[in-house]
Design a protein around this nucleic acid. Structure first.
Lengths: 115, 115
DNA sequence: ACCTCCTACTTTATCTGTCGTAGTAATCAT
DNA sequence: ATGATTACTACGACAGATAAAGTAGGAGGT
């Protein structure tokens, strides 16, 4: 299970990634993140919705009211061109981070003696 | 240049990694992190020293006064067994994070035409 | 002797993003 | 009407990062 400190800084990227694949809304995104992370990262609702506010303020996503609903009306989000650029930049930064942090991580499989 | 949000949660790992390789002190660790990250992550002094306090409180590292000095006396740190275990755990978490975040990152090289 | 530079660490106050807890809002099945 | 599920909001607290400034010691130039 991933802690929030290590995911901090990537929540925005996860959301932009999913919106990059198509418009969506809070609840669905929350479930998709949990599903795609294999249950390793069940994002908190408060974290998610505060991220929406941040991304919207930065002009990366735009909200609109959805009609089809099965409960309270949904707020859908569309990613903007600026959002796509920000997503690409985040992905590039992620590649850098990987190579950098890998230089500080040992490769071993925890014991080297199993099966 | 890596932002602090993405490194947050890995500062402790970087420090434990270097101490795992041998005793050291703040200034040297700061320089080694910058060097090994290829200049991508010049860790802030306040970040570093507050991490030392955190790690010491958790019993992961132990301080002692060094004698050889070229300036103000140095505070060296040794990693403890518990610190080694914490380092291994952080590395394991890092491996998980990589596979999870990769599922949300696009692979492209920004233009698809480089060597 | 004085000043500056470099090493080495500390203090304080502030900001950002996440979290815990709780509450609101709407629809559907019973 | 009541409760379950979907969907979102508000509020206060906290940890870790940051900026800015200060403290402390030795080496080298003038």
């Amino acid at each position: 299970m991933l802690g929030s400190d290590v995911m901090r800084g990537y929540n925005d990227m996860l959301i932009l990634c999913l919106l990059h694949e198509g418009d969506s809304y809070g609840y669905a995104i929350s479930r998709e993140i949990e599903r795609r992370s294999g249950g390793e990262y069940p994002i908190k609702e408060t974290t998610l919705y505060s991220a929406f506010g941040r991304l919207e303020k930065q002009g990366y996503i735009v909200p609109y009211q959805g009609s089809e609903t099965q409960g309270r009306p949904r707020t859908y989000y569309t990613i903007t061109d600026e959002g796509r650029r920000a997503y690409a930049a985040k992905c590039a930064e992620w590649r850098v981070l990987k190579t950098v942090v890998d230089r500080f991580a040992k490769e071993d499989t925890e014991d080297g003696s199993d099966s």
